[in-house]
Design a protein around this nucleic acid. Structure first.
Length: 256
DNA sequence: ATGGTGGCGCGGCCA
């Protein structure tokens, strides 16, 4: 496993040409997608396989949906968090070339105090419990995706405006911190990074042009994988294209 | 300005 990436594409139907171009340019070993917004019957598996990737996916109509693209086959696939009977397709775990990969689309939460916010915090608690068992079973474990959490003020373009708001609230940040406390490493923070580097910019108000963004897409590594990690960056190239996703891909590279 | 833009799918929800 030399390179692994995550990208919230906000509709794979719309973004498929961009994804195929990006695969050709970057040639990651694994690409985790979120917000495919496709039922499984409509998933473009043929085009992805023609590009040289295996693919597994868990989709639903209109909302959510996750997919794992990989050079080598994906085994031991899971699509649920234990203890959460949920029709929303937000989880896709698989083992690829001996590495356990968990692709997540964490709930957005909408607004602090809302029903969706409560669902998000409950979801994160069940995730933490699940990761304890996954960590014990798989020394080489990567958890990546759209976490919908900006972990620290330096991950926010205007920390004062966002303080306590959705994506930045104390309980959300505490949940993320809990994953780090459990031993996961934020791949992006293993390396020196330019300030004001973000992974998501609102479509509204010229967010990207003004770099009004947040870093909410993450690659978390078990200690064994972190020891082999040699770089992590956010590729803003796709965000500059016509009709972009509102998220940019995040990539981590490794020694074999 | 309680807005703004984009996706889905055709009215309103979600982000």
């Amino acid at each position: 496993m030399r390179k692994i990436a995550t990208w919230n594409v906000n509709s794979l139907k719309v973004r498929l040409p961009q994804v195929l171009d990006w695969l050709a340019a970057e040639s990651p070993d694994v690409l985790a997608l979120q917000e495919t917004k496709l039922q499984d019957a409509d998933f473009p598996a043929g085009a992805i396989r023609a590009a040289g990737y295996e693919v597994v996916f868990a989709g639903q109509k209109t909302y959510n949906g996750v997919a794992l693209l990989s050079r080598e086959p994906a085994d031991a696939v899971v699509t649920e968090l234990p203890g959460l009977a949920d029709p929303q397709r937000r989880v896709l775990g698989a083992t690829v070339a001996g590495v356990r990969v968990l692709d997540l689309y964490v709930p957005n939460g909408q607004a602090v105090g809302s029903d969706k916010y409560a669902y998000k915090l409950d979801w994160l608690a069940k995730l933490a419990a699940f990761l304890e068992t996954e960590r014990a079973a798989h020394p080489e474990l990567v958890v990546l995706g759209d976490f919908n959490i900006a972990p620290e003020d330096r991950d926010v373009h205007d920390p004062e405006a966002w303080r306590g708001q959705i994506l930045c609230s104390g309980p959300e940040r505490a949940a993320f911190r809990g994953l780090l406390d459990a031993g996961f490493r934020d791949a992006f923070r293993l390396f020196e990074q330019p300030p004001k580097t973000f992974s998501w910019w609102d479509y509204r108000g010229g967010g990207f042009r003004r770099n009004h963004g947040l870093r909410i897409d993450h690659i978390l590594l078990s200690p064994a994988l972190a020891a082999r990690c040699r770089g992590c960056r956010i590729d803003t190239g796709p965000r500059r294209l016509e009709r972009p996703s509102d998220h940019a891909p995040v990539l981590a590279s490794f020694d074999t």
